[in-house]
Amino acid sequence: MPAAAVAGARGGERPSSLFWRWLRLYLEFGRVGFVNALAYRLRYVTGIVTYFIYISVYYFIWKAIYEHSTSIEGFDFSHLLTYIGVGWIIRSFYFNNIDQELAYQVMEGRLAMDLIKPVNIQLMYVARAAGESIFRLVLLTAPTALVLFLVYPLRPPASVRHGGAFLVSVLLSFLIVAAINFVVGTFALRLQSILGLMRAKFFLLELLSGLLLPISFFPQVFQKIFALLPFEYISYVPMLIYLGKLDDSGLARAIALQFFWVAVLLAIGNALWSWSSRKVTIQGG
């Protein structure tokens, strides 16, 4: 239902009721994302096993790495194991496939269906991804966390305050990833295939988000460059908060910068969308 557009056209309504209509509309997209994920719930059982294998493999890689040293860049083995383990746990929540979904829409000529909807496409995709993430939180993130905390000696958050800030930070990670994936997805409108682009993005995010190893392990020059990019705010920053490696002012600054990147990336995605969708070729349909 194009509730927001209809309400906007009528014009005479109170802003608050307009807002609720708007919210209801995107909540509905969220619900669709949730229900879609429900259809493939079997996948999440294999997901738990997969995440467990990943983290087990990284456990051994890092154990071999720490054979020769007790502390690297201020991370002892226990901190690092928590960094990697909890980093993957939150990835099971913030991760989404918006870029791939957009690519499929274009490939299969269904994009027209998106274009005729009088809604903000970007928000629609983000809302759907949010619904899916909430679903994954229950069926993938929570069980994976339970198993991993039982099997491996992962540390709890540094303090209640750090734990709370960490949760906020992870929500912002979701938005950053969603915004980046939307940006990548918009290229599908102009390019024939974005498979290569998506693969490059995958490796870029793995490395530069700090999922594979803390950003502080990189040479100084790279650290300075990465500080100017949004990627380390996906995994590295939430994990620093979790481990209590940021003081109060650092914590506030980190979360403010996450907000900043969410806004900037959403704006870039929005601009790219309106630029790309002006000249669209619908394939067959």
Binding site: S193, L195, G196, L197, R199, A200, F202, F203, L204
Partner: peptide
Amino acid sequence: AFFSSMAA
């Protein structure tokens, strides 16, 4: 595609 493959 080539350059993204290279980057990956």
